[in-house]
């Protein structure tokens, strides 16, 4: 039956369209999403297609190629990662007890927050390090491939409605002060103390296509690589490894794993349940 054949072919046509669209985006703009996990990527592409009022991903490809503004919107869709301040409080608690003592032994600490998106994690880390009197000698490099989210991160303003959740997270994360000390209400936003961003450098960096740019004592790359397929993960793990000092600390998401990756042997666990690792070779 012809109709049946057409319907069953839909997803395969679609995956071909996705492959072509990603190739087009790469060749035209240099952003390489070809190694992204397809499930989430497809959902984001389809959502953009629908919002643009387009009928197919091929149409989206045409739009992206001829209209850089459309590409900009797509890029934002593809690069925003949802996060919250002190997400996974147990992780920050472990960071306080297991990593902070190590950092005390360095005269100067460089932290790389890779794939920082809108900056929630960078500000959380700034607060934590400040409470341990380490922030004055720390620089946090918070990088993302997308200028738009970096601008948002720089502003240091998050929805006021989130503060209750963040306050609970902060307390569970072992926070030692009143969380409200760190921000002032400003309309619908909570504006964070500019002291916190004094030592954060927000900069554009693409984990897929850019190279290592410094050597760090701590790298935070949490829930970023879940959007990559295995081989891209291996590539990025190579970049992170190259960018970490010997005995430097790598933090990944709580449902991510270094096991079975190309770099499993390079690390030993500082706290395996909280996904804190130390580079040993």
């Amino acid at each position: 039956m012809t109709a049946d054949w057409t319907v069953r072919g839909t997803a395969d046509v679609e995956s071909l369209e996705i492959a072509l669209l990603l190739e087009a985006v790469y060749q035209a703009y240099g952003y390489d999403f070809r190694g992204y996990s397809r499930g989430s990527l497809r959902r984001r592409l389809v959502r953009r297609m629908e919002v643009e009022g387009l009928k197919s991903l091929s149409a989206l490809q045409e739009c992206v190629l001829h209209d850089p503004a459309c590409m900009k919107r797509l890029l934002l869709d593809l690069s925003v990662n949802v996060s919250s301040m002190f997400r996974d409080p147990s992780f920050y608690l472990a960071f306080r007890t297991k990593v902070v003592p190590l950092l005390r032994t360095y005269p100067f600490v460089r932290v790389w927050n890779a794939g920082c998106s809108t900056g929630e994690e960078a500000y959380s880390m700034a607060i934590l390090l400040r409470e341990h009197d380490l922030y004055d000698r720390t620089r946090i490099y918070a990088t993302d491939m997308n200028q738009t989210v970096l601008d948002q991160a720089r502003a240091g303003a998050f929805p006021l409605g989130k503060m209750q959740e963040y306050t609970s997270n902060y307390i569970r994360a072992g926070g030692t002060r009143a969380f409200s000390e760190y921000y002032v209400a400003n309309g619908r936003n909570a504006r964070f103390d500019s002291v916190l961003s004094d030592n954060i450098v927000f900069a554009e960096h693409n984990l897929v296509t850019d190279r290592s740019f410094n050597e760090f004592h701590v790298i935070l790359c949490r829930n970023v690589m879940i959007y990559f397929d295995r081989s891209l993960q291996d590539h990025v793990l190579g970049l992170l490894h190259e960018s970490l000092t010997t005995l430097g600390v790598l933090a990944i998401g709580l449902k991510e794993s270094l096991e079975f990756t190309s770099h499993a042997d390079c690390y030993e666990a500082l706290d395996s349940s909280q996904r804190l690792y130390r580079r040993v070779r």
Binding site: S37, R38, G39, S40, R43, R44, N81, V82, S83, N223, I226, Y227, D229, R230, K255
Partner: peptide
């Protein structure tokens, strides 16, 4: 897992996401 989306990838693996 709680608070993650679970997705099936080609090639016989799962992927997780923290999308909305």
């Amino acid at each position: 897992p709680s608070d993650y989306h679970l997705l099936v990838e080609r090639g016989g693996t799962f992927a997780l996401s923290t999308d909305p």
